[in-house]
């Protein structure tokens, strides 16, 4: 498995670059990673990431967009605005979680 190093943080990833061990994540690392995709992690950006991490820790799977709305109470439009393009993948990556496997 590839190992990434960013500003002194080291973490293992799968072939695509998603985390394989969520424990290697830290908010500081997430902020540095966000800069790589031109995003600044303010509170609004962090809230969904924190929900994803706690939900994944509890249920063992990266939550889907629908779950983030239905269970986390997040607004779908807002998530697309915060993370344009590929919101689910971007959030899963920044939250240090495996690639999402849910379909909806």
């Amino acid at each position: 498995m590839p190992t990434n190093t960013l500003n002194g943080h080291t973490f293992t990833v799968d072939d695509e670059g998603f985390f394989t061990d969520p424990d290697q994540w830290s908010p500081e690392l997430a902020a540095d990673m966000a800069e790589l995709i031109g995003t600044e992690l303010d509170d609004a950006h962090m809230a969904p990431l924190e929900f994803m991490r706690s939900d994944a820790a509890e249920h063992g799977a990266t939550p889907t967009l629908r779950r983030m709305h239905a269970t986390g109470g997040f607004d779908i439009k807002e998530l697309y605005r915060l993370y344009p393009g590929k919101p689910v993948k971007k959030m899963a990556w920044l939250a240090g979680l495996p690639k999402p496997t849910g379909c909806v």
Partner: peptide
């Protein structure tokens, strides 16, 4: 946007 370090593996987010 920060520069991606050499050898850094990350997903393709399709951004320009």
């Amino acid at each position: 946007m920060a520069t991606i370090p050499d050898g850094f593996v990350m997903p393709d987010f399709g951004d320009p």
